[in-house]
Design a protein around this nucleic acid. Structure first.
Length: 253
DNA sequence: TTCCAGGGGTAGA
DNA sequence: TCTACCCATGGA
């Protein structure tokens, strides 16, 4: 049922370890290729908790899904959690790389960011990206017009002008969190909704071309973004999650 | 060549 | 608030 997720993680002092993560019915199993100090082990645990949203209580969403017969698959398939990155910075960069492009190109962009600027296959830190002059970064990352968004974000974080990781430690209201996310260059309504979903506040649908296609099929017409939002409006503050696990009548190939 | 992909920023109305 | 236009990239 479960596969293996392998990932390189950069620890303090420049140590890079490989994680191999599998799961049983009740637990995650994390293998590390090198011995860890207690502090390093705790650092890895913090990242694992974030990746698998273990700090987010989904019981309320499960009860919500239970009240909708067509969402019964969510509990049956034990859905409801999103896989995310060990840091909000990495999630923001990846979301920027999904905008106005194909999934194939998104993967290529993220792969170049890792291989060009990361240490031994680990995702680069803001400081590592910020240390690269913009023209050099753009030529090697080849993110198109997204280069400026990613490079400026890395610089802002590395030089202390913004602390986006702190946004998730504060009990921010959804509206304020969305406002913060929208203030980031390269993050618009779609990106903010994606990130809100990752941050446990799925109050809006991340309307992308897939959403427009599928809602269009349901309604048998070409739809605008506001019609996609209206389609999911009945799910209230859970609409972002419902969209992600929605049982479409006819999947496209 | 032209279109467009898991959109966003900006100017102008 | 809404619309039109532009934005790098690369596959179809």
């Amino acid at each position: 049922m479960v596969g293996t997720l392998a990932r390189k993680e950069l620890l303090s002092a420049g140590k890079v370890v490989t994680l191999r993560i599998t799961g049983s019915e009740t637990a995650l199993i994390v293998e590390v290729d090198e011995p860890l100090s207690p502090a390093e082990e705790e650092a890895i645990l913090v990242r694992i908790r974030r990746m698998f949203q273990l700090d987010i209580d989904i019981a309320e969403f499960m009860r919500f899904a239970d009240r909708h017969p067509h969402l019964s698959h969510i509990r049956e398939k034990r859905q409801g959690r999103m896989l995310r990155s060990p840091s909000l910075f990495e999630d923001v960069v990846k979301v920027i790389c999904t905008t106005n492009t194909t999934w194939t190109q998104t993967k290529a962009m993220v792969s170049r960011i890792v291989t060009e600027f990361g240490v031994e296959g680990a995702f680069p830190t803001p400081a590592e990206i910020a240390a690269v002059p913009f023209d050099d970064f753009a030529a090697r990352a080849k993110l198109g017009y997204r280069n400026a968004s990613v490079h400026s974000l890395a610089g802002d974080i590395a030089e202390g002008r913004t602390d986006i990781e702190g946004w998730q430690d504060q009990a921010l209201e959804a509206a304020q969190l969305e406002k913060n996310l929208l203030s980031l260059r390269g993050i618009g309504p779609y990106g903010a909704a994606c990130l809100m979903l990752y941050l446990g506040k799925p109050v809006k649908v991340n309307v992308d071309s897939w959403a427009r296609t599928m809602v269009g099929k349901e309604l048998s017409k070409k739809v605008e973004d506001k019609e996609v939002h209206a389609f999911f409006a009945e799910y209230g503050d859970w609409c972002g999650l419902v969209y992600h696990f929605y049982p479409w009548k006819q999947e496209t190939s």
